[in-house]
């Protein structure tokens, strides 16, 4: 074995190039598959929040994709709540929605909405939600019924909270509580309030409140805050529906 510097440098160069080539070839070769997986995952999240997936049943990726195509119609609205005609919701990156729209005038903002239609009428709306938890950013969807008032479901697909505590926001017991709750009190947007576990919810708050996770107060508050933030974001769009519902 040679131990002079030139040999060492040459050797390292060869190793580095070889490793880099190997890694790049694999990464580039698998990229299409990974993108497809991410897309299917995203579609699965939307389908699950609007309640089209059966609990505990597993779905193949082709099933998910055809179901999504068949049932979900996505639209894009601007900051004023007006539908953007040439908008493509699938092109918006949900993880950076807040950043990309930040500081833009209302007309130029782009917010996606996913709709389920039945007999030509929208029966469920799903909006992306995101915000801060304790350790990490939380990403999910909130689904509302046709009246844009009753919660049809909530789901979180990306979080890095404490397993067993904050990460419980992914659990059915936490998410089930939201179903049937109402985000409006009269014509006022009150969103959903999260009470500490064990604290009795006052009767007049019953339909706007759920219980949080014990040991995960900051995550729970994070969920409460992000709901307020994102519901207000979509308020201009939903306002017309609320009006037509007589609220």
């Amino acid at each position: 074995m040679q131990d002079n510097n030139l040999y060492t440098i040459k050797f390292m160069l060869i190793i580095c190039v070889a490793c880099a080539v190997g890694v790049s070839v694999v990464a580039m070769g698998l990229k299409p598959l990974q993108m497809y997986n991410a897309e299917i995952d995203n579609q699965k999240n939307v389908l699950s929040v609007v309640g089209l997936l059966e609990e505990g049943k597993s779905y193949g990726s082709s099933q998910i994709s055809s179901m999504y195509k068949e049932r979900i119609k996505s639209i894009v609205v601007n900051g004023k709540g007006e539908v953007v005609e040439d908008g493509n919701a699938d092109e918006l990156d949900l993880l950076t929605l807040d950043e990309t729209n930040k500081g833009k005038p209302e007309e130029e903002q782009r917010w996606p909405i996913f709709e389920v239609e039945e007999g030509g009428k929208v029966v469920t709306f799903a909006i992306p939600i995101s915000g801060r938890g304790l350790w990490s950013a939380l990403y999910g969807y909130l689904a509302l019924d046709a009246n844009a008032d009753t919660v049809a479901g909530i789901t979180f697909y990306k979080e890095g909270e404490t397993a067993g505590l904050g990460a419980e926001i992914r659990q059915p017991w936490f998410q089930e509580q939201f179903k049937g709750k109402e985000i409006l009190e009269g014509d006022k947007l009150v969103s959903i309030k999260i009470f500490k576990p064990g604290v009795p919810i006052p009767a007049d708050m019953e339909e706007h409140s759920v219980h949080g996770i014990s040991g995960a107060t900051i995550t729970s508050t994070g969920v409460q805050d992000l709901l307020v933030k994102d519901l207000n974001r979509y308020k201009p769009f939903f306002a017309s529906i609320w009006q037509s519902e007589g609220k």
Binding site: M1, D3, T8, F11, M12, I15, C19
Partner: peptide, 17 residues
């Protein structure tokens, strides 16, 4: 062939790849 003074770096490069 691995020069002994950069032994661990080489190992690490291979492992991380």
């Amino acid at each position: 062939y691995i020069p002994s003074k950069v032994r661990m770096i080489v190992e690490l490069a291979v492992i991380s790849s």
